[in-house]
Amino acid sequence: MQTHEAKRVEITIEAMMQTRLTTALERAGVTGYTILPVFSGSGRSGNWTRSGQVSRASGMVQVICIIRPDRLDTLLDAALGVVESHIGVISITDCQALQAERF
């Protein structure tokens, strides 16, 4: 089966910043992404769990984008502009995608 090289970018960010991030991605031409809720985690800002959070300000989400390698820098510039001053992590993984026309 024919596969194509792609980059999988995972951006974990505060829920409050979700719309700002996706708007920045769309402005940069990245229109395909998936958003997942985050249940719990631990990092530089301490332990965190979604259970019993009283407001959305304390929530976290993960935005996943699978893109062509040549569009990676554009995406990262857009994402970093939003994530840089907030709690969050950006990671990049090499992956293979089947339907190249979709990315």
Partner: peptide, 19 residues
């Protein structure tokens, strides 16, 4: 406040410690 203001502070003053 523990709903509206924390949310606004996370956006407007992200360097402030939410804890």
């Amino acid at each position: 406040s523990y709903i509206a203001v924390p949310a606004a502070m996370r956006v407007a003053l992200p360097k402030a410690n939410p804890s």
